[in-house]
Design a protein around this nucleic acid. Structure first.
Lengths: 232, 232
DNA sequence: CGTCACCTTGACGAGTCTCAAGTTGTGTGG
DNA sequence: CCACACAACTTGAGACTCGTCAAGGTGACG
């Protein structure tokens, strides 16, 4: 896709209706374009924070710790806005899961422009709050849940985002590998694989090939996700 | 402290300079007041999201999972703004560590008012971004670090927020119990206690009483925090 | 000064990681 | 279209960290 097409997609999704042409042009002036093949890391938050818009494809935000350890902080799909932090105690990398196209901005300039447009900051704030909510949920998962609860949780979350009805169940076509899932859940690929096996044996899901998962029993999965039903 | 005093503190900290009297009054009209003794849970995000301003004291935001498991999502000190989510897959409770006084608002109304005041949304956005950054760092800690790294990390983070120079080291007066630390780090109190012991034996810190910790070697702690030094 | 909750320390076991081998799926080139 | 090659995934056995259970110590408060 051409840059104008991609930028158009950004405008449609993020800029409020009725945004002036002048504002469009200002955003366009500071926008950068990046296309990435699956596995590529188009850019890190080198030096300063970046804001990336995922125009197509899907990405993961990876944090790097010592000893080559990696933690997937979040996954993103087409239409998502991601804030990629500059390097701090840990380094962050935005990484393509599938081939994808990105529009990105230095965060500071992005916010400066956003401030001028009524409704724009609201949109951004709402998305950041959503990201915070997801991150908090992940915190519970990583801090207090066992392997099976983590995977059940993950599958239900993915269902909300990319699940599709199919033959009485919900079909997921996961763009990420078992390693990505493991790095997201704070587990090893072996443990993830074993838990897929257990959930399959329990009749809660079927796996077809490497990326397709059919969720057969959402309630059963929710029951194994360690969610709170009765507040204490 | 009286409500006007507390609200004044909120205004000074959060409302931008030059905010109109009308806006002040509008915020004051929807503001609720809560004082809480140490250990109290003044309110949960019952029904709808809440925004709380910690006027004095300190708090923890706790997420509840099944089986009575608790995860401390974040700690807050005087001057902090906290978003307390409504109940979803997990229930959240804001809980006082020390006696404290809070000003709080239904989130929706808060944002609606904030929108009217230039600079206000910026302030809120900046704080939410900071919260997101902290939550992401926590994600790495919980997903990929061992007990010692988690505690070292925690102590360094607390030092940034409430540490004070003292006799060549840094003195922390922690308002939270070992249980709170454990619930924040995804560990048990016993493991936290053991790791305090190891760091003490290694000469990196001293503990005085239950709440005071003297950090003797910040570099040594950072070395044990699993931070990334050389990007891969 | 006594009481109680909080914290520390120890022994043991469960859950997950590590290491290793085998299997399956996907994409490529004949 | 099939066969090959490689990476991704699965499965198994043993090790290790951290959780559990239990007992004892300590500091803060009345």
């Amino acid at each position: 896709m051409t840059f104008p097409d991609l930028f158009e997609r950004f405008s449609m999704t993020i800029l409020p209706l009725g945004t002036s042409d002048a504002t469009h042009l200002r955003f366009q002036a500071v926008a950068r374009y990046a296309s990435a093949r699956a596995g590529d890391a188009p850019f890190t938050g080198n030096g300063s924070d970046q804001i990336a818009f995922v125009a197509s494809g899907s990405t993961k935000l990876v944090a790097h710790a010592s000893g080559g350890r990696e933690q997937v902080v979040a996954f993103h799909f087409a239409g998502d806005l991601v804030s990629v932090p500059a390097r701090a105690a840990h380094a962050y990398t935005l990484c393509a899961l599938e081939d994808c196209e990105l529009i990105y901005f230095p965060a500071e300039e992005f916010y400066k422009l956003a401030r001028f447009e009524a409704g724009m900051v609201d949109e951004v704030l709402e998305r950041v709050m959503k990201a915070l909510a997801r991150c908090r949920e992940k915190t519970i998962t990583l801090g207090r849940k066992n392997a099976q609860e983590r995977l059940a949780n993950f599958l239900l979350t993915m269902d909300e985002r990319i699940g599709a009805d199919n033959d009485g169940g919900r079909l997921l076509d996961l763009p990420m590998s078992r390693r990505d899932v493991a790095d997201s859940l704070g587990l090893t690929i072996e443990t993830v694989s074993r838990q897929f096996g257990e959930l399959r044996d329990a009749g809660l899901l079927e796996t077809m090939g490497r990326s397709k998962v059919m969720l057969l029993d959402l309630q059963g999965l929710a029951a194994r996700a360690g969610h709170l039903f009765e507040p204490a």
